[in-house]
């Protein structure tokens, strides 16, 4: 099944959702991302792996221009989504971020009710025609985040009162509620227990049908479970990129091999 899908991809040249060309990121004098080229396919889960501090989060944050909020960060090179350069002067990062959703490492629900957390995105983007419509969006987002059954009776309770795993799923629901085309997830399961991790992974499987998902993870097993493509980062460089199966069974670069066999990282 996996193979079939990949063949399908291979013939479809328009399958590239995100294309990065010669991306360099500097934090002041620190060169955090060195000349990264990558094509990320649509309706695919792509995993970024690599040792701590190698620039996975930095690269992820380039894709929705969250690096704009860091005053010392400077991005060079091109990142194209659907063929459009997102660092073009005419691009409004606010509009971009509605299209490219993000889930952060640490759950960060708003100190508002569960309902308002999920409804916030649709509200500010004017996605719902009326209250009933909004209710529908909230419910489907919570259902897709596998949270609906746990919270449906207390939608007015504060989102910050949920458990860590529930909070993370709430954040996923919040990101999904704006119907983004790309979902960036920075170690979404690092605060979760195995059961919640399993739920989130199932969710990622489902999301693949509609979204292009990019996930940063420190868990090799997670990367092999959820992703079709994997990119290995090392000290700011993207060392290897390919089908997940290939990377884990037959790494071409020595550094990749060392990392996945547990010799570094």
């Amino acid at each position: 099944m996996n193979d079939m899908r990949l063949t399908e991809r291979a013939v479809d040249n328009n399958g590239t959702k995100i294309r990065a060309k010669g991306v360099q990121v500097y934090y002041g004098d620190t060169h955090a991302i060195k000349n990264v080229d990558v094509d990320i396919a649509d309706k695919t889960v792509t995993a970024f792996i690599g040792p701590s501090g190698c620039g996975k989060s930095t690269f992820l944050r380039c894709i929705n221009r969250m690096n704009d909020t860091i005053s010392v960060a400077r991005v060079e090179g091109d990142i194209l989504i659907d063929g459009e350069d997102i660092y073009d002067k005419r691009v409004d990062p606010v509009q971009l971020r509605a299209k490219v959703g993000m889930v952060f490492q640490k759950p960060n629900p708003f100190p508002k009710s569960i309902y308002d957390n999920v409804a916030y995105g649709p509200r500010i983007h004017g996605l719902a025609k009326d209250k009933a419509d909004l209710d529908g969006i909230v419910e489907s987002a919570l259902r897709r985040a596998a949270l609906w059954d746990e919270v449906k009776d207390r939608l007015t309770a504060p989102g910050t009162g949920l458990s860590g795993g529930q909070q993370q799923r709430l954040c996923i629901a919040r990101a999904v509620a704006t119907s983004p085309e790309v979902l960036l997830m920075d170690e979404p399961c690092s605060a979760l227990d195995p059961i919640a991790t399993d739920q989130v992974e199932n969710l990622i499987h489902e999301l693949r049908a509609n979204y292009s998902v990019v996930i940063v993870t420190h868990s090799m097993s997670q990367a092999s479970r959820v992703s079709q493509k994997t990119a290995y980062f090392h000290l700011g460089e993207m060392v290897e990129y390919g089908d997940t199966g290939d990377i884990f069974t037959n790494p071409k670069d020595e550094r990749t091999e060392n990392y996945i066999t547990g010799r570094i990282g």
């Binding site: 929705n64 909020t69 971009l96 960060n108 708003f110 916030y120 983007h125 990101a175």
Partner: peptide, 15 residues
């Protein structure tokens, strides 16, 4: 105010 709140809002496309 924790910066994660700002990130959360900006991350879903708030201005």
């Amino acid at each position: 105010v924790p910066p994660s709140i700002r990130d959360a809002a900006l991350g879903i496309g708030a201005s």
